[in-house]
Design a protein around this nucleic acid. Structure first.
Length: 294
DNA sequence: AAGCCGGGGGA
DNA sequence: TCCCCAGGCTT
């Protein structure tokens, strides 16, 4: 495959067809990009959009969020899911405000030291907020690489191999590289989708090894499937969190456990287990028979 | 490497 | 119903 032709075609498509997302606009601050990346971890764009707009208006800088109570961040997180992310983003804001002069770090290495930032988010911030040339690989890009480069039906390469592959595809010019990173993700999100890829409208179909091989069903390995949500501890935790978000101040432990059980439980210990785990995670503080957000 | 952590939307 | 999602942390 000619990498220049491939990236050129993908970038041209992105320029004309990409969704108009506010954190991609030239004026978006590094902080704005970082907040979007936290919210987008395992949560789709259309659900993130309204929350992100609220957050940026309320907490336009790291120090603004750092000055808030962590519970305010958790409450404002709403139903985005995985509320620990709100807690981690709040901690990251404190780290940025106090250790980095309120400026989002620029290097991948330093970004990785922030709470809640891993290999994907660190590179995404460095590439999208600062325009540095790094391979950015998320679940969409992994699938695009698996299909277009390796002719596989689904992603299955080790993460390090995907980074190497993306590095090889990445244009040398940092500006073009940043667009290519976003374009590969976008392609996976809206064309080269997991279930029903729209190959007829794919801008890089001519280079796609999977298409060239006749779409073999050669998925290397199923990813371990997540335990069902219904009846899970996560669901029960979610009930308690929903009550805490909806209640100013405190709720009694009794009320929290009742909310946990409301709707049914898989086993009798589940409400208490969920309650204790939320405390252990720092999402809830207990005192004198009552509980509240941190 | 595997398990855990929300919640919603699409097929 | 099951699958998937701009992942990261803990064990």
């Amino acid at each position: 495959m000619d990498h220049d032709e491939f990236s050129g075609a993908l970038n041209t498509w992105f320029t004309g067809s990409a969704r108009d997302l506010p954190w991609r606009k030239p004026g978006a601050s590094p902080w704005a990009v970082l907040v979007s990346e936290f919210m987008l971890q395992q949560t789709q764009v259309d659900r993130v959009l309204p929350r992100w707009l609220e957050w940026m208006e309320r907490w336009p800088t790291p120090s603004a969020l750092a000055a808030a109570e962590p519970g305010d961040a958790v409450r404002a997180w709403g139903r985005l899911g995985y509320p620990r992310r709100a807690l981690w983003l709040h901690r990251a804001a404190i780290q940025i405000a106090t250790e980095h002069n309120d400026q989002v770090p620029t290097s991948v290495e330093t970004l990785l030291e922030l709470t809640g930032i891993g290999p994907y988010t660190a590179r995404a911030v460095a590439a999208f907020a600062y325009g540095d040339r790094h391979p950015v690989v998320d679940t969409n890009t992994r699938r695009v690489i698996a299909r277009a480069v390796h002719g596989k039906a689904a992603a299955g390469m080790p993460a390090a191999a995907d980074l190497d592959d993306m590095e090889a595809l990445l244009p040398q010019d940092p500006a073009r590289a940043a667009v290519f990173n976003a374009a590969a993700m976008e392609l996976g999100a809206i064309v080269c989708t997991a279930r029903t890829p729209a190959c007829d409208s794919c801008p890089v179909a001519a280079w796609c090894e999977w298409r060239g091989a006749g779409y073999p069903d050669n998925a290397p390995k199923k990813r371990p499937k997540q335990a069902r949500f219904e009846g899970s501890d996560r669901q029960i935790r979610g009930r308690i969190m929903a009550l805490l978000r909806a209640t100013p101040g405190t709720v009694t432990t009794e009320a929290a456990l009742a909310a946990a059980a409301d709707g049914g439980v898989a086993d009798a210990e589940q409400p208490r287990r969920a309650y204790d785990s939320l405390i252990a995670d720092g999402l809830m503080i207990e005192f004198e028979g009552a509980a509240r957000l941190p």
